[in-house]
Computed example of a mutant assay.
Amino acid sequence: MAYQAGGQRPAPRPVPETPEAQAYLADYAAFLEAVPFPSLVVDHRWDVLLTNSAFRTLFRDVGPHPTALPTDNFLRFVLFHPDAATVLGDHESSWCLPMLAHFAKSVERYGHDHGLQAVRRDIAQDPIMEAAYRHGLPHWLRAVGEQAAEHDGAVRPLLHPDPRWGATDCRIVAETTRTLQGMNCTRLTLVLREARRTPTRNRGIRRTASHLRVVPAAD
């Protein structure tokens, strides 16, 4: 499932205003760099504040995109970047649908947020994505349960460009600190697992048009 998002480039990511917050993030970036697994810090819009080298290595072969780079906004990357399926295994069911579920909750909580509204408009521009959001997502949640949409603790497939990892799994560890929480931010770490996977037939294919295979268009 890959989508070409329309609309304008998102507004610049907010920068912490106080020197204390800026200094904290600078030190946190140094801490993040010491983490051996791909890790990033995002806000409630999934705007990316920080990444480490392991994260950038994971997505090093991703092509350019005006609005959906993984180092800019991870939600937009998962939903809209045509290369997302080349890194995120089982892209539709393991990544897109959980992200759509999380997005739906964010819209309920931050309904007037301009960044989230822009994503919602881009979803609405694609009839198949809109059908997935309005009809397929509720069907999927009823089938698999609300817990399937949770990120923390979820084990999801990856296609790592480093052949030492290749087709593998990661466990997502979501955590925050009091300071990050005050910025409405969370750190996500993709803990790579030793067990290797056998790539499925539809994984790792770059798609340039809208596709939706894992959920029905309506109940």
Score class of each variant (00 low, 15 high):
Met1Gln: 11
Gln4Gly: 08
Gly7Tyr: 01
Arg9Asp: 00
Pro10Thr: 05
Pro12Ala: 09
Pro12Arg: 00
Arg13Met: 10
Pro19Tyr: 01
Glu20Phe: 10
Gln22His: 04
Tyr24Gln: 01
Leu25Trp: 06
Leu25His: 04
Leu25Tyr: 09
Asp27Tyr: 10
Tyr28Asn: 00
Ala30Cys: 04
Phe31Lys: 06
Glu33Phe: 00
Ala34Met: 12
Pro36Glu: 05
Phe37Met: 02
Val42Pro: 02
Trp46Val: 01
Asp47Trp: 05
Asp47Phe: 02
Leu50Lys: 05
Ser53Val: 08
Ser53Phe: 00
Ser53Asn: 01
Arg56Thr: 13
Thr57Ala: 13
Thr57Gln: 15
Phe59Arg: 00
Asp61Phe: 12
Val62Asp: 00
Gly63Asp: 06
Ala68Gly: 09
Ala68Leu: 04
Leu69Ala: 14
Asn73Ser: 06
Phe74Ala: 02
Phe74Thr: 09
Leu75Tyr: 03
Arg76Thr: 05
Phe77Ser: 09
Val78Thr: 15
Leu79Cys: 07
His81Val: 11
His81Glu: 04
Ala85Gly: 10
Gly89Gln: 03
His91Leu: 10
Ser94Gly: 04
Met99Pro: 00
Met99Ala: 15
Ala104Phe: 01
Val107Gln: 12
Glu108Cys: 08
Glu108Val: 04
Tyr110Arg: 09
Gly111Trp: 10
Gly111His: 15
Asp113Thr: 03
Ala118Ser: 12
Val119Phe: 07
Ala124Gly: 13
Ala124Glu: 15
Ala124Asp: 15
Asp126Gln: 09
Asp126Phe: 02
Glu130Met: 14
Glu130Arg: 14
Tyr133Phe: 15
Pro138Asp: 07
His139Cys: 05
Arg142Gly: 06
Glu146Pro: 08
Ala148His: 12
Glu150Val: 11
Asp152Ala: 10
Asp152Phe: 01
Leu158Asn: 07
His160Arg: 03
Arg164Tyr: 06
Arg164Gln: 14
Gly166Val: 10
Ala167Leu: 03
Thr168Trp: 01
Asp169Val: 04
Thr176Cys: 06
Thr177Asn: 08
Thr177Glu: 08
Thr177Cys: 10
Thr179Asn: 04
Gly182Lys: 08
Met183Lys: 01
Asn184Gly: 13
Cys185Met: 15
Thr186Asp: 06
Thr186Arg: 11
Arg187Lys: 12
Thr189Tyr: 01
Val191Thr: 11
Leu192Pro: 02
Leu192Gly: 02
Ala195Lys: 12
Ala195Val: 14
Arg196His: 15
Thr200His: 14
Arg201Thr: 13
Arg203Ser: 15
Ile205His: 14
Thr208Trp: 03
Thr208Gly: 02
Thr208Met: 12
Thr208Lys: 02
Ser210Lys: 09
His211Val: 14
His211Ser: 12
Val214His: 11
Val214Asp: 13
Val214Ile: 01
Ala218His: 15
